[in-house]
Design a protein around this nucleic acid. Structure first.
Lengths: 234, 234
DNA sequence: GATTGTCGAACGAACGTTCGTTCGTCAATT
DNA sequence: AATTGACGAACGAACGTTCGTTCGACAATC
């Protein structure tokens, strides 16, 4: 990659960072290109050297975010054979990512509908791919639980599995709305609470508590950065 | 109430209905007063006979919604002595309300930050009051679970209780993002899935399954309507 | 019972501002 | 000499809001 392209990519990334912050604060329609220009230090018109329109800027932001999320989830997929532990890794990765990039998270959740129809489909398919990864992790835990001798549950229907998966995503996605580092513990605490609720529930005796044992420090704890910055900047 | 006032209230309610739908679709900043005028059949300026500003319209929408939610939750609070069953009623009420009024729900979740500072505080206190109701229900289930002899859990710390409560709210609040009546079962199915996940988890043997027994058909199933319409008008 | 006055309610037009976007220019880099 | 990238100026459109006016219903007056 020529230094020309590197510099261009760097500045596109900077603009996306600033845009994520502003959109998270005021919504897509609430952020003006003049706001974004002031935040980045560019003139208003210079932004159009990097993105064709305001909408394409939003689309690029969401696409990059989901691609990063999917890559991180895939990387740490087959680390451990235990289903409950794998689910914990999945939950923790996403929780920490959302806590580290709260503004991007808000954009992902809030502004899917603001996209033009063309980019909508691309983002939706990425979202569905990510959902399937999560559902596989949930299904594995489900199957493992059903295999225990003292439960008489039959095989889980697909609809119920979908509902359970969406509910678990709900717990994770809602973190942006309430989490305060000074009030609610570490990201690990949050991930443990969610995982424990998902696997064991509020009152049941928990047959699998993988939250205690430490995670492999490699891929699972790898720092995922949505909009990658060049080394040395900021 | 004089028929004059009744008519005025009726039309305020109509406008709020239309606004909820438009804001849910495009966001607060994405809805223009001209859009709202066209949707309601009023002229643009006539809207200002009913609301002082666009922001006050949003504030009124949110305040009414939370007041309705709180009233419904309070009504069905002490129906049954069983903690798990009470939690189910709480979950089901909110799930059904969100399914019936998906647009209002989206406004509540998305547009809290768009409020001016004055109304912000009022909405926030309502939200906190509602949270406390939910947390009490969760705490009761927690305490009941801890009392069972085969678990060795100590008393639940306040922080963990908060995290669990927020997570359960997350499952419920996320429903708007995925629920499709033709794909994901009835509202009762959704509430049962969430409640089962909250109380029993994915794999644990469930000590309390109150979802099977029917609910009292009175207050718990009472239809809650956010923006009350006069009888007889569509 | 006709006339008059009051007032709420709805409107079109226009306000000043801000929106996203385009264009021509010009300095800096290659 | 050629290309890139940053810029201010300007565009038409749309924004939230205000204004003056009009219309029709209802009570009080004659």
């Amino acid at each position: 990659m020529t230094p020309r392209q590197a510099r261009l990519e760097q500045q596109r990334s900077d603009i996306l960072h600033a845009a994520a912050s502003l959109i998270a604060e005021r919504g897509f329609h609430g952020m003006s290109m003049r706001d974004l220009a002031e935040a980045t230090g560019f003139g208003v018109s210079s932004l159009y050297n990097y993105f064709a329109s305001k909408e394409e800027l939003l689309a690029e932001l969401q696409i990059r975010a989901f691609e990063t999320l999917i890559a991180a989830a895939n990387d740490s997929r087959q680390e451990t054979p235990d289903a409950a532990a794998r689910l914990y890794v999945f939950i923790f990765n996403q929780v920490r990512y959302f806590i580290d990039h709260a503004d991007v998270m808000r954009v992902l959740i809030h502004e899917a509908a603001a996209l033009p129809a063309e980019h909508r489909q691309r983002v939706r398919s990425l979202k569905e791919a990510y959902f399937r990864i999560g559902r596989d992790a949930v299904a594995a835990v489900f199957a493992q639980g059903c295999a225990t001798p003292d439960t008489a549950r039959g095989p889980v229907e697909a609809v119920a599995l979908d509902r359970a998966t969406y509910s678990i995503f709900g717990m994770i996605n809602w973190v942006w709305a309430w989490y305060e580092p000074t009030l609610h513990g570490t990201p690990e605490d949050v991930a443990r609470s969610i995982h424990s609720l998902a696997v064991c529930g509020l009152v049941a005796r928990c047959p699998a508590s993988p939250s205690q044992e430490e995670l492999p420090p490699g891929l699972a704890h790898r720092q995922v950065s949505l909009l990658k910055r060049q080394a040395g900047t900021k």
